[in-house]
């Protein structure tokens, strides 16, 4: 029977492809949210596999908070062009024009306006009835309880106490007008699975994940990179070159680096398996309040 058993990665791959195809078949207007991060990169690869030799039959959408690392945007534009993706870039125009940013308004306001509101605005603007996200259940406690097809009411809200039962590989895709489903094909993947898959499939990722000398400012114990001149001068002046990498990617003023020598996937995994800090702790936004991610999810953030 050994011949007919799948490895963990191939079983996860089969499950994710099934989920992605199911959405393409059952929804009128799905979109894949692309965050430029490593999980997104895996998710997009799975979508490409699901419809090979055809093209992915739905667009990708990046919610640009306008404060992403420059290398992320560069990577996004090059890769999308090379692959011929149908990529939508959406940002909160009002928020941008009124100058909302993490340095001036703090992480809470910035995240709310430039991420959560921007996302909801983007979803409403194009009337998407399903949106893929790359979230994993092992990332964070409230996600552990969320379904793969996660129902959102017309205000994009998640109700953890009122989730649809989800059994076998049968997904309920029925929604009324204005309601939608967030779909998480990577729900059952762990961080290690993601890295293993990137290694196995040779999936390109943003270089920020690999260790390099970067200009770093220490802010409240977080190692923040001086990525552009919007960082206040008095902070930039304190910047020092340090060998760091990023375990997650987001808005540069809100994403802490870790000191690391890991410049290959193998070294990253080695570091990960022995490291003492879990992944999301380098995202400043999670520490705003107790159970903050659950709160954000209820409000419509992933």
């Amino acid at each position: 029977m050994k011949e007919y058993s799948l490895t963990n990665l191939r079983e996860l791959e089969a499950e994710a492809i099934h989920i992605i195809r199911e959405v393409a078949a059952e929804f009128e207007n799905p979109v894949m949210l692309y965050s430029i991060g490593k999980d997104s990169s895996v998710m997009v690869r799975l979508a490409e596999k699901a419809f090979y030799p055809g093209k992915v039959p739905f667009p990708l959408m990046h919610i640009d908070s306008k404060w992403k690392f420059r290398e992320m945007i560069e990577f996004r534009d090059n890769y999308a062009k090379e692959k011929g993706w149908d990529l939508i870039v959406h940002y909160n125009k009002k928020g941008f024009e009124s100058g909302i940013g993490p340095f001036s308004h703090g992480s809470k306001v910035h995240t709310d306006v430039m991420k959560t509101q921007a996302l909801l605005e983007g979803l409403s603007k194009y009337k998407f009835d399903a949106a893929f996200g790359g979230a994993r259940r092992d990332e964070e406690k409230s996600r552990a309880k969320e379904r793969i097809f996660s129902f959102r009411d017309k205000f994009h809200q998640w109700d953890p106490k009122n989730q649809r039962p989800e059994l076998w590989n049968i997904y309920n895709a029925r929604v009324h007008k204005g309601e939608s489903i967030r779909v998480f094909p990577l729900s059952n993947w762990t961080e290690l699975d993601i890295w293993q898959y990137i290694r196995l499939e040779e999936i390109p990722i943003v270089p920020l994940y690999f260790s390099k000398e970067r200009p770093i400012v220490e802010m409240d114990g977080n190692l923040i990179m001086a990525d552009d001149d919007r960082m206040p001068k008095e902070l930039v002046e304190k910047a020092q070159m340090r060998k760091v990498r990023f375990r997650t990617l987001g808005c540069y003023p809100l994403t802490g680096a870790v000191e690391s020598e890991a410049d290959t996937i193998e070294k990253i995994v080695e570091e990960m398996m022995t490291v003492t800090v879990s992944e999301r702790t380098t995202r400043v936004i999670d520490f705003d309040q107790e159970a903050s991610m659950e709160q954000k999810k209820r409000e419509g953030y992933f």
């Binding site: 309880k145 953890p160 106490k161 107790e290």
Partner: peptide, 21 residues
């Protein structure tokens, strides 16, 4: 026990998925 409300009640109320290797 992940969700806030449940933590206060001291019980898990839904299916939660855990991963280990």
């Amino acid at each position: 026990d992940g969700l806030k409300a449940e933590r206060e009640q001291g019980i898990t109320i839904d299916v939660a998925y855990r991963y280990f290797s």
